[in-house]
Design a protein around this nucleic acid. Structure first.
Length: 275
DNA sequence: ATGGTCGCACGGCGA
């Protein structure tokens, strides 16, 4: 079973690319971030045509997460328990469309057991002193508690937290760490990295890094300033797997080719294969 | 080349 996660930066703008990606790599399950649409604008027919069930959490033109599967899709959760809300200046806090969970793989033809999968779009943080940063850290804290509790109640759980984490956990995960530290950039700050490490401390495993160690291995390149050809990228998209699931991973990789050419998302898909 | 990159509510904001 092949599971991919991909921040598509608008599903409608990327519809042809998404369809071609699913076919090219024979993807069974796709966790999508930044659909950038509400349900009424969601391209349902794309997935129907391609033979996938799909579920979506999209409440505005921002954010939006989805899971598409051709091997079963059940027990959908829109948002995780206690997911923090955000309102500018604390006014009218809303739950943003940044998380959707579902069980996939119950109908896997290869006999692979079901997986509890989350498609996550972690808040950006925007600046070290910005109110979005506190929101980001709290959002991650509650998500980590949820994942750790699931692992504690069932150490054999097959859980995957996938998506755009908006954190570069290691110095080698950005093209110039000295620049990032000098300028006080987000994504590399100690509190953000501690928030990410807490997931690893709970037992979740980045199954891609051991197979594709850095430096220079990225999942995101800014649209501006020719960042992609200049190799100025960041590794911020991850598939974190519970120990029981990580043990069954047979391959994992980043589809850097997908970042090439006209009409690419600024993120590359991250693919994991389970045996 | 006085810009520079995309996406979304068409235009200022988010990344």
């Amino acid at each position: 079973m092949k599971i991919a996660t991909w921040n598509v930066n608008s599903l409608r703008a990327r519809a042809d690319r998404v369809e071609a990606f699913l076919e090219r790599h024979d993807i069974d399950v796709l966790a999508i971030q930044e659909t950038k649409c509400r349900d009424e604008n969601f391209p349902w027919e794309l997935f129907e045509r391609a033979g996938y069930e799909v579920v979506h959490n999209g409440t505005s033109q921002w954010n939006g997460v989805a899971i598409a599967s051709r091997v079963g899709l059940s027990d959908v959760q829109r948002g995780f328990p206690g997911q923090p809300h955000f309102g500018k200046g604390g006014v009218d806090p809303q739950e943003e469309s940044r998380a959707i969970g579902a069980t996939v793989g119950a109908e896997a033809a290869d006999g692979v057991a079901p997986v509890r999968l989350w498609s996550l779009y972690v808040p950006n943080g925007r600046g070290l002193e910005n109110e979005h940063m506190g929101y980001k850290l709290e959002w991650l804290r509650v998500l980590q508690e949820h994942a750790a509790a699931r692992l504690a109640e069932d150490p054999d759980t097959r859980l995957a937290l996938t998506g755009d984490w908006n954190i570069a956990p290691q110095d080698e995960d950005v093209w110039d760490i000295e620049l990032f530290q000098r300028e006080g950039y987000t994504h590399v700050s100690p509190p953000e990295r501690a928030a990410f490490r807490a997931f690893e401390d709970a037992g979740l495993v980045d199954v891609v890094r051991p197979r594709h160690p850095g430096p220079g291995v990225y999942t995101y390149w800014d649209y501006t300033g020719l960042a992609f050809p200049k190799k100025k990228g960041m590794r911020i998209d991850f598939q974190l797997c519970s120990p029981a699931l990580a043990r069954t991973v047979t391959d994992a990789w980043i589809d850097r080719e997908e970042r090439k050419g006209k009409g690419a998302s600024d993120h590359a898909p991250v693919v994991v294969e389970l045996g």
